[in-house]
Amino acid sequence: ENVVSAPMPGKVLRVLVRVGDRVRVGQGLLVLEAMKMENEIPSPRDGVVKRILVKEGEIVDTGQPLIELG
């Protein structure tokens, strides 16, 4: 699984990683606000951040690609 998608609609509050960062399974990639709750979106696997597909403040839909892992 190379693309991390939004599990719910919401607003991207914070991106916690940068392109080139090594991440571990379960590590927070970004914080999504949904229904006034902050939800940290975890990495599904170990890898390297290849691309960040959203910006802070952006509104996303369920299933929208957020981050690509390499």
Rank of each mutant, 00 (worst) to 15 (best):
L30T: 12
V48M: 05
E68Y: 04
V17F: 03
R24N: 09
E40Y: 13
N39I: 09
I41N: 03
N39S: 11
V31P: 00
S43W: 15
G63M: 02
L69Q: 12
I52C: 00
L29C: 00
I52S: 11
P44I: 06
I52H: 09
R14I: 12
L69V: 13
L29H: 01
L30V: 04
R24D: 02
D61G: 03
A6C: 00
P7K: 07
I67Y: 10
M35L: 04
S5Q: 11
E33R: 07
G63A: 03
V17L: 02
E40P: 08
V54Y: 06
K11Y: 13
D21H: 02
L16M: 02
K11L: 13
G57S: 08
L30S: 11
G26C: 01
L30G: 05
Q27V: 09
A34I: 06
V19W: 03
K55S: 07
V49S: 02
V15I: 07
E1M: 00
V23G: 15
N2C: 00
L66D: 00
Q64M: 07
K36A: 03
V3A: 03
L13E: 07
D46L: 02
G10S: 04
I52M: 07
L29Q: 06
V12P: 00
I41S: 11
I67L: 01
P42T: 12
G70Y: 09
K50G: 08
G57Q: 07
I59C: 01
Q27D: 11
P7Y: 04
P65G: 11
V12W: 00
L53V: 14
M8H: 08
K11P: 13
S43D: 02
L32F: 09
V3G: 02
E38Q: 04
I41K: 02
V60W: 06
E58C: 01
P44T: 10
M37V: 05
V49Y: 02
R45K: 06
G28K: 06
L66C: 00
R18I: 10
G47V: 06
A6H: 13
G20M: 14
R18P: 03
P9D: 07
K11G: 11
R22P: 13
I52R: 10
M35K: 14
L16R: 10
R51C: 01
E58W: 03
G20W: 01
L53F: 10
G70V: 03
E38P: 05
L69D: 04
V17K: 08
G10L: 11
R51S: 09
L53Y: 11
I52W: 09
E38L: 09
V23Y: 10
G47H: 08
K50M: 12
V25F: 12
S5W: 11
G28S: 12
L66Y: 04
K50Y: 06
G28L: 08
L53W: 11
K55F: 13
G47C: 01
V23H: 07
Q27G: 04
M8Y: 02
Q64I: 09
R51K: 02
E56S: 02
N2Q: 10
L66V: 12
G63R: 14
I41P: 15
T62A: 10
R14P: 08
G47L: 10
V23D: 00
R51H: 09
P7H: 08
V23I: 09
P65Q: 10
G28N: 15
E38T: 13
S5V: 07
K36P: 05
S5E: 04
E68F: 03
K11W: 13
L66F: 03
M35A: 03
I59P: 08
V23A: 04
E40L: 11
E40I: 09
D46Y: 02
L69R: 04
L66N: 03
G26I: 08
D21M: 02
V4L: 02
V19Y: 06
G26L: 06
L32I: 15
V19A: 15
G28D: 11
V31D: 12
L13M: 15
G26E: 14
G63L: 09
A34N: 06
G26H: 10
G20P: 04
I59Q: 04
G20C: 01
E56R: 04
I59V: 13
G28H: 08
G70P: 15
L32R: 01
V3Y: 10
I52Y: 10
R24I: 14
V4G: 03
K55L: 13
E56F: 12
T62P: 12
M8L: 12
D21T: 02
P9R: 08
S43T: 15
G47I: 12
I59H: 04
R22F: 10
N2M: 11
D21K: 02
R18H: 02
P44M: 06
E56T: 07
R22A: 08
R45V: 14
A34G: 11
L66K: 00
G63P: 11
L16P: 11
L32G: 02
K55Q: 09
V23L: 04
R18E: 13
V49I: 11
Q27K: 10
D61P: 14
R14N: 03
R14C: 01
P42S: 09
L53A: 14
G26P: 13
P44C: 00
I41A: 13
P7L: 10
E38A: 15
L32Q: 02
V54N: 05
A6F: 15
A34T: 15
Q27E: 13
L30Q: 02
V3D: 14
G70I: 06
M8C: 00
R18S: 14
L53M: 15
L53R: 09
E1P: 05
G10F: 12
V15Q: 03
V54M: 07
P42V: 04
L32D: 00
Q27P: 03
E38G: 04
E1G: 01
V4F: 04
E56N: 04
L29Y: 01
G10I: 02
V3F: 10
M37Q: 07
K50Q: 09
G20I: 04
T62F: 07
R45F: 02
I59E: 02
E68S: 02
K11F: 10
P65V: 07
E38K: 08
R22T: 11
L66G: 09
L53P: 12
G10W: 09
V15P: 15
R24A: 07
V54K: 06
R24H: 09
E58L: 07
L16T: 03
E68I: 13
E58V: 14
L69N: 15
V60A: 09
V19L: 15
E38M: 03
I67M: 11
K55E: 15
N39P: 12
P9S: 14
G28A: 04
Q64R: 14
I52T: 15
E33Y: 12
Q64F: 07
V25P: 04
L53T: 11
E58T: 09
L29V: 12
D46F: 03
L16C: 01
G57L: 13
R45A: 12
V19K: 01
E40A: 14
K36Y: 11
R22D: 12
E1N: 01
K11C: 00
N39C: 00
V4A: 12
V49K: 00
M8W: 13
V31R: 10
E33H: 04
G10E: 03
G10C: 01
A34S: 12
G47P: 00
P42E: 15
P42K: 15
V48W: 07
E38N: 14
V19I: 15
I67R: 00
V31H: 12
P9A: 06
I59L: 03
V3T: 15
G26N: 15
V17Y: 02
V15S: 10
K55Y: 04
L16N: 14
V25T: 04
